[in-house]
Design a protein around this nucleic acid. Sequence first.
RNA 1: UCCUUGAUAGCUCAGCUGGUUAGAGCGAGUGACUGUUAAUCACUAGGUCCCUGGUUCGAGCCCAGGUCAGGGAGCCA
Length: 504
Amino acid sequence: MYIKNLLQFIDQSVTLSGWAANKRESKGLVFLVMRDGTGICQCVVDESKVSPEIFAAASKLTLESSFTLTGNVIKDERQTGGVEVQVTDLKVFQYAMDYPIAKKEHGIEFLMDNRHLWLRSQRQWAIMKIRNTIIFAIHRFFQQEGFVEMDAPIFTGNACEGTSNLFETDYYGDPAYLSQSGQLYGEAMAMAMGKIYTFGPTFRAEKSKTRRHLSEFWMIEPEMAFYDIFQNMDLIEKFLQFVIGEVLKANQPELTIIERDTAVLQTSLDTFPRLTYDEAVAIIKGEKDVNGKNSIKTLEEDLKVIESSILSTQAEITERETKIAQPGIKKGEINFNQNKIAQLKSSLKDLEEQQRNIPQWLESARTFKYGNDLGGSDETVITRLFDKPIMVYDWPHEVKAFYLKRNPEDPRFARGVDVLAPEGYGEIVGGGERETDEKLLIDKINEHELPMEAFEWYLDLRRYGSVPHAGFGLGLERIVTWICGLKHVRESIPFPRSYGRLLP
RNA sequence: UCCUUGAUAGCUCAGCUGGUUAGAGCGAGUGACUGUUAAUCACUAGGUCCCUGGUUCGAGCCCAGGUCAGGGAGCCA
């Protein structure tokens, strides 16, 4: 029996096993908030209805103690889940002593140190449920579309794209690197199977400390024979909309728990705007408006809004601090105000950080040099003007990976495409049509100073039945982060691995 | 690697211009209360003020170096 099914057992006796998420006590009554992994439910132990031993056992329960209980399910609209259980029997597995995560605000370092326990909290639980929906939806979409799942190797003999820093390991005495992408292997498999996708871990040894980076993350890389860049973009759009739609269908309770405003997810079910690199640059530099919105002006207005909310937040903190310093004030009111002040202070820190960052972003947008890749701040600047993901394609070939196909009509550009999520989230997908011309590919490999012998097998794909083909890579944690509206990728994966973080 | 912010009780934070014995709330423990929603009320315990050195009659506060963490840049999904 699980909590999620209780509505079907009104006025019946059930047995549940789980943990104490909270406990409140009153004379003669113990209110246990039980969680069992499928949901939470208030269970009431009434002294007059159970044996003294059971009541004493319930009264002693601490946060995250484990127990099993039997009781009658009562309909009660006031409770989350709409039901309450009136306990008739209780057996404790273990009394948990001094559970570290308290019923209050905690700092991020403390929570990350306790990630193994933090996962039990409602918000993290909801995020993991949504992550699960997304993973399952990805597999279902590709399977429905006739794709074959393949596993690319994790050990690789060389830095395959020659860009990022890779993790080096010892492979029977020779250096081997943890894979930063399965794409090249995906291309080989696509020539065997037609349409394939990989779903596996990816490693980048970048010393990045930002809200969008992890050292280890999960990537989905489809590759399709006989697809050009436009068919690729059609597929990306259909795919992302399927995933978003599945979350909207399956996870309304979870989206409510994490307080996600789903309006932007709804609008994302409409056609994604497709911009060329040239158009995107004009928008970032403020030379071209989007729906009446100008990038530079929007940023300047944001800065003003932030400055005024800093002032009002500071004023409220001072006001509440004065209030609790007055003599004769009730303890409950001090408690309430202190918690409020702690919240205000942490949002003040965020605001001040934005206040420091926005001028840098403005500067970077104003002075953007045509021909460069978009930086993190440029992505933030442009995506805040849209209410759905956008696709940017036809990039200057110098800034993109060696394997991207040159636009035959304008060889200055490569047929890459990046999907940028709205609300400032930035790149969630990178892909494109692949170069099929062996000679152009050899030139590119030399240009990037990559070891030719390591790419002989890859060049074989162009020697034996070369066909137009395309594909893309989706960062799982990035899309979870955007769909959930999280502030940081580290909340999107059970045990994040980032620079300086290997435990727990 | 660079820029920037920070480190005080188990947790979240105060601590003024350097000045006597470092504070609050939460959490924990004890007691009170018959329906609570982070319950409420009273009491109790709880400190290497990140580390090393310096300035000073005196350092949680000032200076130098370091460690760790947050945010950003670069790089990327």
